[in-house]
Nucleic acid binder design. Structure first.
Lengths: 205, 205, 205, 205
DNA sequence: TATGAATGAGATTTCATTCAT
DNA sequence: GATGAATGAAATCTCATTCAT
């Protein structure tokens, strides 16, 4: 629960963002006070408001940045690969990497959507839906490629895959036993098997 | 975001618990106020304290009940089945059912552990660890049975399985397209494939 | 500027209202803080919120009560008297009395309308318009009775009369030189002369 | 309530003054923030302090200018006219014109005296008293001229006259039905009748 | 001349909780 | 069993103002 302060020499605006990431991820949006945020960023709570709008704006900015990056990365994967299985494998690796390397951002995105007001929520959900729709079509392509039905099953599989991969943000530690690329590769294997690909061919990246 | 009140004729103690489930699940612990809780339960905020200790006690009670039931159910599964694959399949079905039928409880357990104080957190984490250790050994048994290595892979697979199945609490609706037992069966298939069982033999329950 | 505290033994709800009257009248709505209000009423600022909604609600309640009473009194005058000149004389006396006896309320009504939000402002302005329309028709009747044109002149006269009489709230002191009824009678004479009645017949009440 | 920005090409100092007039008149001194003032003047809030002392200084300057002009104009009227009735008629016209043409200034003078600190308040009240004493003696002269007692009655009449004429600032619109000079003339008639002059002789200017 | 950065103090309102009745 | 009254602490956010650049 105690979160060490950022207190670096980085520009204040960045420190505010870092503080928000640290604390929102660790204690949740409603569990984080403005004063904690300020202290963590090494500012007074009044000064905080030079670098942000409202507390909610700060949250939305974090979510938007994170989701936009996920979308861009997913689109890049789809562009770079043509083979359905390879696409899915690479999508899984990308998602796992994102959640292992930016666990704060992704945890905030995954866990704090419901605190947003109507307008902000709509925006964030639109982004999230765009990201998920990329997954959806990639999963459907794989199911079609291996001769499986791709209706309700594809939705189920997409959800299962996304949840399973997002979980990485909850436990991965960069100083842990498995290097990140190992974890990403293994998840790709698990994911392909899950959707029904019997012998995932090219697990390497 | 608007959560309809319980306002039933149930005994007050139960109404308090229901209110907490509704609101903690919908808005989070820190996002739920004592007065909202009281209003939702049809009591005054002072009366609330006849039926609970502190707000945190209420949260802990919800988590404890939920986790103890999961543990009991998991132990029952292990007792009832001997075959590793069948055990895992049944464990998955049980977990999916629990998350589909009691999404509020499981969401609270999954999402609010970090708000607990040290003592309560230790207790809850102990329970969670017990539950996960049951899964861990069942997964290991399956991997051993199919001739796969069961070290770090088993931990990875267990985490992937649990995350993927817990996600059901986020999207399952009792009035949706798939009946619950279908979803449970399908998840069992997905899960077995994930760990490497090629032709899940007895998907039915 | 220093306003002596109410601090009586009156019920808290009343003390809050009194405090608001004292301070809103003396320092204005925006010049009065919640903490000053609380201190003046002998409560903590948190306790204040047992007896009121928001600060604006408190203001609106004061305005509504004051305006509704003015309207009721004006309607009573119109009902009680038939002669136009007598009606106007009595209306003036009533208005002067109200502003002399309840200077805090009337000053708040006259000076703080623009701080209200849209909804509250609409309500208050509706009440104010009702009150002024009573005056308007009484003034028109007088002008007609004395053979004067009653168009734009009546509007001008009504405004002049109301402003002149409302000013009493700014200077009348109960311990001053003139008894209230004298002031009221004299204003009735001034007012009738203003609209053009040469020898106000029944200045007494 | 929304006040359109000044945003002109006028020199900054003037823009600051205009902004203060707009906002103090519309929202009151305490209802106007330094940042609103700055935005309205097209400056940053820090730059504002190049053109003013404190916020209160700005308010005092507005009040002083307005009152000094009223005093000068009133003295000019007294100098220019010898006949008591004509003096009063012209004084009324002047006051009405001032309030119709500079409603922001006069509203601020009339409504924000009590927010001033002791020193500033003393200065402003001294000016106001000087202005009112001019009126007082003119009214007394009229009463004496028409053979009426001029003691307490004169004070009452002066107050009634001033309030009634100041009210013009609250409703006069330059694009309204009556041209300003009409309004001024009519108020002169109303005012003379009010003090007891039966047939105001020279209503025109 | 002009402004970003900064802040201590204070704004209004809600927090979880207690207690006398 | 139930609640109105009460509150210290804290919530988010704005205040008027200063200062180095």
């Amino acid at each position: 629960m105690p979160v060490p302060p950022t207190a670096s020499t980085a520009p204040a605006e960045e420190r505010v963002r870092e503080a928000a990431l640290d604390l929102f991820a660790a204690r949740g949006y409603h569990g984080t006070g403005i004063r904690q945020l300020a202290e963590h960023a090494g500012l007074s709570s009044a000064s905080l408001y030079h670098y942000m709008g409202t507390k909610e704006d700060l949250l939305v900015a974090i979510m938007r940045t994170c989701l936009e990056r996920l979308i861009a990365d997913a689109e890049a994967v789809v562009t770079a690969r043509a083979d359905p299985e390879e696409r899915l494998a690479e999508l899984i690796r990308m998602h796992v990497r994102a959640h292992a390397e930016r666990p704060r951002e992704t945890r905030v995105v995954d866990g704090e959507v419901e605190v947003l007001g109507a307008a902000a929520r709509a925006e964030v959900i639109t982004l999230r839906d765009r990201y998920e729709s990329i997954w959806q079509s990639v999963v459907e392509d794989v199911l079609t490629a291996i001769g499986a039905p791709a209706g309700e099953d594809a939705r189920l599989a997409r959800r299962a895959l996304l949840e399973m991969c997002s979980g990485v943000a909850r436990w991965y530690r960069p100083d842990g036993r498995s290097p990140l690329e190992d974890v990403a590769d293994r998840y790709a294997v698990l994911g392909l098997r899950l959707v029904g690909v019997p012998h995932p061919s090219h697990p390497s990246h």
